[in-house]
Amino acid sequence: MKQQWPRRAVGLGILGMAVGLGFASVSQASQASETSEGKAYPNRMIRLVVPFTAGGSSDVQARMLADRLGKLYKQAVVVENRPGAGGHIGGKYVADAPADGYTLLLGSIGLHATYGVFKKLTYDPATDLKVITVLAEMPHVVVANPALPANDLKQLVALARKEPNTINFGSAGVGSSVHMIGELFKLTSDAPITHVPYKGSTAALNDLLAGQIQLMFENPPTTLAHIRGGKLKALAVTGKARLPALPDVPTAIEAGFPAFEATSWTTVAVSAKVPDAIADKLNADIRKIVSAQEFRQGLSDQGMTPVANTRDVASKFIAAEKVRWDKVIQQGRIVAE
């Protein structure tokens, strides 16, 4: 009997509306977060590591955050792309960084919830990284090359069943959200499509535009311009509601696929060795940044919902997501080569 996938009721968007709560702890965190030299944190340049190639949605969010964080701290916040191994090259780099809070990570589903596809990781993301907050979440857009003779999900499934394994979907790498949401579609629709992993979404998107692959389950920030320009066609979005940026594109639920509902999300994380006082200060300051209307609108314009929750809420959410995506990995028998 085919497994039924439960609809999500995480309610991250609601949590994001509560970013204004809890700011009374900002001054206390600031007083407690001094370096070993006795200087207030931060007092020098901060690195924000993006574990994917430049140009993807993680990179977009990182640069938005780096700009605001740099202005708040009056210190340079430099975005550093360290792609590879589904994001785990960058993840391990941050896990191994000095415990001083000057190396941050823009994390993802792949880093925190779907790393079960990798059987030989040289670190444990659950224990070697400390999550500061869930920064934002977003649905994905099912996008196709215009040459694909399918204009909605039902036509896509019918075509895939008629011509099994002739439709290839690209991703940012094995275990990435772009990959896992595609696998969820395969499982819930019984559509025989083939995964083609790339080293980042940018390379996959380039091949989709060129017609080398036919399909992606991609983030909105990297697809909106191509959809509006007619270079890609949007078949559906994977969230509970339509995207304001794509009001004419139905949700998968509206298209008759109620089990195909998922969002991806990003985090800010540090090495697990970083003191809680610094982690708490970062949490309070990032929540302050995300509470600003300009920043929230910037995320919304890219199809993202701001979250910025507390460390405790973020940890509980990620634990639940890990359970959810482990089921997809097991059911789909997904293993990184």
Results as ranks from 00 to 15, higher is better:
residue 313 V to A: 12
residue 331 Q to I: 07
residue 328 V to P: 07
residue 334 I to R: 04
residue 333 R to F: 05
residue 299 L to R: 09
residue 265 W to G: 00
residue 319 A to K: 03
residue 287 R to S: 04
residue 266 T to E: 03
residue 322 K to R: 15
residue 264 S to H: 07
residue 272 A to F: 06
residue 266 T to Q: 07
residue 282 L to Y: 04
residue 326 D to G: 04
residue 303 G to A: 10
residue 262 A to T: 04
residue 322 K to W: 02
residue 270 V to A: 02
residue 302 Q to V: 09
residue 301 D to W: 04
residue 315 S to W: 00
residue 332 G to C: 08
residue 326 D to K: 11
residue 283 N to I: 02
residue 310 T to L: 10
residue 260 F to N: 10
residue 279 A to K: 11
residue 299 L to V: 08
residue 265 W to V: 00
residue 269 A to T: 03
residue 327 K to I: 10
residue 319 A to G: 01
residue 263 T to N: 14
residue 275 P to C: 09
residue 283 N to Y: 03
residue 296 R to H: 07
residue 294 E to R: 15
residue 327 K to A: 15
residue 304 M to N: 15
residue 263 T to S: 12
residue 311 R to A: 05
residue 334 I to E: 09
residue 275 P to W: 12
residue 291 S to P: 03
residue 332 G to L: 05
residue 332 G to Y: 10
residue 287 R to E: 03
residue 284 A to S: 10
residue 321 E to K: 01
residue 280 D to K: 12
residue 308 A to P: 10
residue 270 V to W: 01
residue 291 S to C: 02
residue 303 G to K: 08
residue 271 S to I: 05
residue 304 M to Y: 13
residue 327 K to Y: 04
residue 307 V to W: 11
residue 283 N to R: 09
residue 271 S to V: 09
residue 267 T to P: 01
residue 318 I to H: 01
residue 309 N to T: 15
residue 297 Q to F: 05
residue 326 D to V: 06
residue 263 T to G: 06
residue 267 T to A: 02
residue 293 Q to D: 14
residue 319 A to W: 00
residue 333 R to M: 13
residue 277 A to F: 04
residue 301 D to K: 15
residue 305 T to P: 02
residue 277 A to T: 15
residue 312 D to N: 07
residue 332 G to K: 11
